[in-house]
Design a protein around this nucleic acid. Structure first.
Length: 484
RNA sequence: GACCCCUUCGUCUAGCCCGGUCCAGGACACCAGGUUUUCAUCCUGGUAACAGGGGUUCAAAUCCCCUAGGGGUCGCCA
């Protein structure tokens, strides 16, 4: 029986999903799909105090929006469920019992305050900070009787003299740690609920996760989890500790994590294809891209992705590159599609909206920028634009525009389309007054749009129609003469 | 403080395992030129990096050692 690759994404519902979480999910997803394996979603809600209302729903929403569909999870079920840790307590209890038989596990009655003092003392002496072992020597009989009245946690003992513990990491290779600095660690709280370290290891084992992909921040704790796997007699999974993502400002990523949440990015007008493409390139490389470019669809990523090519060092988030990649994916979409996704602010534009969107589709990096086209659909407001005044009030430009207007009107009345009329009209003034290039075109752009940048003029003219074109030019001439 | 991980253009990275083809390639950003009779799009070109120091070798971005810097962990958080 060939073992099927099983990866999981195991977020805790304590807040929004930021780009770091999402990238972890993406890598687990891509690897599973690449290997034709299974991608599992597990909600780690063992810390009831930190649960945030709606956070679990947000996880589903964001993953779905990104297109990272899971094969097993709390909502869809699966063969090794339930997939919510809070519904698996009976399983953890069984495993606590089991580990008591297989390993040195003991009750610890130390209070949190006591433990805190211990750590401070150790720290002031520049010693390794770990549990001092105060409760290790309590006899089984004493332990049993104290347990009836006192609060206690379960600790797993780590012999100091043991061999160094090695883990196999798919990204970092073999990583070793000597056991004398690990210390006896808590596996179950005084409430009876296991800590993350334990529940997470048990779940990964029972759910037969073959590849544990997670952030590098878990690397140090992995050694304890390996001890748990061994004591329980479960095979160890392959670990893949992903590099962290840092902030461009050099500051801590978490400080700006809010603005880098998936929800926020979506609100800013980024599309799933763009975000997926960008995240894949953060910490992973497809190799030589000089032939292929860096634009990849999710399917192409599934095809190429492998944990072997994940980087070891952390990557800094680069907003510019996200925008660029988002733009390339935006250019791929049909104008109809985009028009539907981003409706016009004013329903009166519904009829021409698709064509309007087509006009700026290639100039935008986010969906929200589509609305920029709306300002070109209205008569420009010259009065509030110093630049328009500068341009339209020169003698030469007034002449250019008014002569052009005459030609354009003639063309229209002789049956030309507005595009043709505008094009030929401008050409004619250019010839008559022998001006060309920017000198010729800029006055018309300003007269028609009131701006120095925007979509191509001829298609825009077609979009707004001949009446609007004439009206705008007339208004421009009038405005240009006001102070003369 | 201890331990673990990391270190190629400003940023993401290729190359590193299997030393020579690398006075280090691509992409974003930036700058310049071209196309579009403006801007943007698009095309072409340019600036820009092997953290530092020792070794090994005919030859090192690539192998070894040290130093420095960055990150992570050390919680009845995950």
């Amino acid at each position: 029986m060939a073992t099927i690759v099983r990866t999981r994404f195991a977020p805790s519902p304590t807040g929004f999903m930021h780009i770091g979480n999402a990238r972890t999910a993406l890598f687990a997803y891509l690897y599973a799909r690449h290997c034709r394996g299974r991608f599992i979603l597990r909600i780690e809600d063992t810390d009831q105090e930190r649960l945030v209302d709606g956070a679990e729903a947000a996880i589903y929403r964001d993953l779905k929006w990104l297109g990272l569909e899971w094969d097993e999870g709390p909502d869809v079920g699966g063969p090794v469920g339930p997939y919510r840790c809070s519904e698996r307590y009976h399983l953890y209890e069984d495993h606590i019992k089991r580990i008591r038989k297989n390993a040195r596990v003991y009750r610890c009655f130390c209070s949190p305050g006591q433990l805190d003092q211990d750590r401070k003392l150790l720290s002031s002496q520049n010693k390794v900070i770990k549990y001092v072992g105060r409760c290790l020597s309590i006899s089984e009989a004493d332990s049993e009787s104290r347990a009836k009245t006192d609060k206690f946690v379960w600790r797993m003992h780590v012999p100091e003299s043991g061999e160094s513990i090695a883990i196999q990491d798919k990204i970092r290779g073999e990583v070793k740690m000597t056991p004398d600095i690990i210390g006896d660690f808590i596996i179950s709280r005084s409430t009876g609920i296991p800590v993350f370290l334990f529940a997470n290891a048990v779940d990964d084992a029972v759910m037969e996760i073959t590849h544990v992909t997670r952030g590098e921040d878990h690397l140090s704790n992995t050694f304890r989890q390996v001890l748990i796997f061994r004591a329980l007699g479960y095979p160890e999974p392959v670990f893949a500790h992903l590099p962290m993502i840092g902030d461009t400002d050099g500051g801590k990523f978490s400080k700006r994590a809010g603005s880098l949440s998936i929800e926020n990015l979506k609100d800013e007008g980024f599309i799933a294809e763009g975000i997926i493409n960008y995240m894949a390139l953060l910490g992973w490389s497809p190799g030589d891209t000089s032939e292929t470019g860096e634009k990849f669809s999710k399917e192409e990523l599934v095809d190429r992705f492998d944990l072997d090519r994940v980087h070891k060092s952390r990557a800094l988030f680069d907003y510019n590159k996200l925008r660029f990649l988002n733009q390339t994916h935006l250019q791929n979409r049909s104008p109809e599609d985009l028009a539907k996704l981003v409706p016009p602010s004013n329903p009166k534009w519904s009829g021409i909206w698709k064509d309007a969107v087509a006009l700026i589709q290639h100039d935008i990096s986010t969906l929200n920028e589509i609305h920029k086209i709306e300002s070109f659909l209205e008569q420009p407001d010259f009065d509030s634009s110093p630049m328009a005044a500068d341009v339209l009030r020169t003698d030469q430009n007034r002449k250019i525009i008014s002569q052009g207007l005459v030609s354009i009107k003639e063309k229209i009345s002789s049956g030309s389309s507005i595009e043709e009329a505008l094009k030929d009209g401008i050409k004619k003034v250019g010839k008559d007054l022998s001006v060309k290039g920017k000198e010729l075109y800029f006055p018309f752009r300003m007269a028609l749009t009131g701006k120095d940048a925007g979509p191509e003029l001829n298609p825009l003219a077609k979009l707004i129609g001949s009446e609007a074109v004439v009206a705008r030019l007339e208004r421009a001439v009038e405005f240009g003469s006001q102070t003369h």
